[in-house]
Measured scan of single mutants.
Amino acid sequence: AEKTGIVNVSSSLNVREGASTSSKVIGSLSGNTKVTIVGEEGAFYKIEYKGSHGYVAKEYIKDIKDE
């Protein structure tokens, strides 16, 4: 049951290796980017990222929809 969301930041949002603010940053997404959410862990969504997965803070994702 995948969902999509939109990155809701003015600059960019860090994509992390794990569901923690201390996890390594593996990339970033600019505002209004559409993401595919494959799961959630605590305050983070697990998303599809560059052929693999990454984690982003839930508070910066809006317009969550079921695909």
Rank of each mutant, 00 (worst) to 15 (best):
G42C: 05
G51E: 10
S52A: 13
R16W: 15
T4G: 05
Y55E: 00
K65P: 10
T21A: 13
S23F: 05
G27T: 02
E41V: 12
A43I: 09
S10K: 11
N14T: 13
T36H: 12
I26N: 02
E41F: 10
E48A: 10
I61D: 01
S28L: 13
T33E: 10
L13I: 15
E67W: 02
S23N: 04
I47E: 00
V7D: 02
A19Q: 03
S10Y: 05
E67Y: 03
I61G: 01
K65S: 12
A57K: 11
G18I: 08
G54H: 02
K62Y: 13
K3H: 09
Y60S: 09
S30Y: 12
D63L: 13
G5T: 04
N32D: 11
G5H: 04
N32P: 05
E41S: 10
K24A: 13
A57C: 06
I26E: 01
V25E: 04
S52F: 12
E59W: 07
K58W: 03
G18C: 09
K46D: 03
V56Y: 00
T36D: 05
T33Y: 06
I6T: 09
S52Y: 10
K46V: 10
R16E: 01
L13C: 09
K24S: 07
S10Q: 14
G5Q: 03
D66T: 11
K62A: 13
E59H: 08
G51H: 09
G27D: 03
Y45T: 02
K65H: 15
S28G: 06
I6Y: 09
A43Y: 08
K3A: 07
A1W: 09
E2A: 14
G18P: 01
S52L: 13
T33S: 11
S20C: 06
E40M: 09
S12D: 10
Y55N: 00
V35P: 01
I6P: 02
I47L: 02
S12W: 10
N14M: 14
I47Q: 00
E67V: 13
T33R: 06
A1S: 13
A43E: 13
K34F: 09
S30H: 15
K46E: 10
K58E: 02
K34R: 14
V9R: 07
G31D: 13
A1F: 10
K34L: 14
L13V: 14
K62P: 03
G31R: 14
E67I: 14
G39C: 05
S23P: 01
T36W: 15
S52Q: 13
S12Q: 12
F44S: 03
A43L: 14
S23M: 05
I61E: 01
S52M: 13
D63R: 07
I64Y: 10
T4H: 11
G42A: 07
N14E: 14
V25Q: 04
E59A: 10
E17Q: 14
G27S: 02
N8M: 12
S30P: 14
N32T: 06
G31N: 15
E48I: 12
G18A: 14
I6Q: 05
K65W: 09
V38D: 02
I37R: 01
V38T: 09
V38C: 05
G42D: 09
G51L: 08
K24C: 06
T21V: 10
E41A: 08
A1N: 14
K58S: 05
V7Y: 01
T4M: 08
V25S: 05
V38G: 02
T4P: 04
E67C: 06
S12M: 13
T21Y: 14
I6M: 07
K50N: 13
T21I: 14
E17S: 12
E48C: 08
Y55A: 01
I61S: 01
N8P: 04
S52C: 06
G42N: 09
I26L: 10
N32I: 05
E40T: 08
V25N: 04
G42S: 06
K50G: 14
G31V: 08
T4E: 13
G18H: 15
V56S: 01
L13T: 09
K34I: 11
K62C: 08
S12R: 15
K58G: 02
S11V: 13
K3M: 09
I47K: 00
